Computed example of a mutant assay.
Amino acid sequence: MSSDRRADPPAAALEALAALEGVPSAYAAARDGIDVMLRDRGLRRTSPETTAESLLRGAHASGVLEGSASTLAEVRAGEGDAIATDAVRVSAMLLSVVPTLRQAPLQALARVHAVAAGASLPEDRLGRPRDAESAQRLRGVADLLTARTSAPALLVAAVVHAELATSTPFASHNGIVARAAERLVLVARGVDEKSLVVPEAGHLALRAAYESNLRGYADGGRAGVHAWVLYAAEAYAAGAEASPLRRAAE
């Protein structure tokens, strides 16, 4: 968040963002779209295989955003490059971390990073912040995740994503961790309990805007944060369109 918002208590900072111009309507529309998609496409009839497909699509998209050159078909066949393989490894364990995210978010984030970077970093760097400043930023993310707030869960997910992606608290794989954390928030807060929306694919579909708005967020200005929050609502709508529920019905 912008420097002035970081000085506020986490709940107040989130609620201030939720009240910015255009944000309430954007997030109401995004949540309505997700709810309608889940209801109309037969949420009660979904299988574990549908969730697995959503996670696989998310892993592919997150890997591409991290620099992977693998296609979805290659990832599905287990033939993805190293970055894609890292993202798939995260997707395979991700939902098991949901209870930890609720109770001990720092532990959950450390676990996600350890799995993502397990094939490329020495053990003593897995799940550990790069330095004291990074540790402080991670504590700030944990505070956002545990704050009692009336801000929409989608907005909390968007801010957590941006904070992790722009502060790069770990030695590697920060984008993969950030996008995994975003999905975790959507599950943990009841937006998408079966993890059928593919937010990572939403970001990939809007890649130029995704990367531009993350740069704006990183600059720390209020306008950049506002732009990111508005962008994220659009990305969630695109993530709903990428759901295997939606595609299966076409």
Rank of each mutant, 00 (worst) to 15 (best):
A29T: 13
V112E: 08
G22C: 09
Y210L: 04
T149A: 07
A205L: 11
P24I: 01
L196K: 08
Q107F: 06
L17F: 04
P122Q: 05
R148L: 13
L14A: 00
E200R: 12
S91W: 12
R5D: 09
H173K: 14
G220K: 03
A151M: 02
E200F: 02
A237W: 04
R189E: 15
D40A: 09
A227T: 13
A12C: 07
Y27H: 04
A237V: 11
G202I: 09
Y217L: 01
A108R: 10
A157G: 14
L109I: 04
L230V: 03
R31Q: 10
V64K: 06
K194R: 15
G221C: 06
I83Q: 05
A201K: 02
S2C: 07
A19K: 04
S25I: 08
A82R: 14
A117R: 05
S25W: 03
D192S: 14
A238G: 02
D131N: 12
R41G: 03
I83Y: 03
A147P: 11
A11S: 06
R5P: 09
P48Q: 05
R39T: 14
V187Q: 10
V159W: 00
G239M: 08
V177W: 07
E193F: 00
V75W: 06
S62D: 14
L106K: 15
E74A: 11
S150C: 06
A233S: 06
Y231F: 10
G220C: 04
G190Q: 07
A119D: 13
S54W: 06
E74P: 10
S68H: 15
L109D: 06
A180D: 06
S70H: 10
E163C: 00
A181M: 15
L145C: 05
M93N: 10
G127M: 05
H173A: 14
F170K: 12
D219N: 13
G58P: 07
R41K: 02
L43H: 12
T50M: 10
L65P: 07
V23L: 01
G190V: 13
D4T: 05
P122E: 02
A69S: 12
R45T: 10
A227S: 13
M1T: 01
A61I: 14
L184I: 03
A7L: 09
D8W: 15
H113D: 03
A7W: 03
A19H: 02
D32E: 13
M1N: 00
T46Y: 00
L206F: 05
V75L: 08
E234Q: 06
L245N: 15
V115W: 02
M37A: 15
L95S: 11
Q107H: 08
H113A: 04
S25Y: 02
R128F: 04
L144H: 01
H113L: 05
L43E: 15
T166K: 01
